[in-house]
Amino acid sequence: MKLRLMVNGESRETEVREGESLLYVLRERLGLFGSKNACEQGECGSCSVYLDGELVCACLVLAGQAEGSEVVTVEGLSEGERLHPVQEAFLEAGAVQCGFCTPGLIVAAHDLLSRNSEPTEAEVREALAGNLCRCTGYEKILTAVQMAAETTP
């Protein structure tokens, strides 16, 4: 079946098989590999994207459910070479190790800061509880989000 989507501001159309998730479509059909496949059940947040402005796990969206929707992935957050302040902060803070959780965390942190520009530490922790990281122990991620909050206009 055909699926039409607006992805990162661009209108895309692709053939999909019923049963494919939005995550599969983004990755394997549209070549947007930034959203990661780590758990396939919404537990790790590595596939976090915006679906019509809402933060969701792309692995839990059946492709057809996204028909005609607007999707923003991690690839849509930077403008060419210019990184988004959240991305800058992750680099600056040393919040990236293997990096597999990073795209999802950046989208989730982006969402948090768009709703709450000055989150407390507890608010950051609660907002990012659905994004598992196995490398960093989260300390630098916390720092990165706090840094981004200071630099995000």
């Binding site: 019923e18 049963g19 998730s21 396939e40 059940q41 919404g42 692995c59 839990l60 969206v61 059946l62 057809g64 459910q65």
Partner: peptide, 25 residues
């Protein structure tokens, strides 16, 4: 299916594959 938190896990893990899915979103 709405939020997919049950249906999609079944699909992704290859556990259950319903013949028909009705999206209520």
């Amino acid at each position: 299916i709405f939020g997919g938190t049950d249906v999609m896990v079944d699909l992704n893990f290859g556990r259950k594959r319903p013949e028909t899915v009705i999206d209520l979103t």
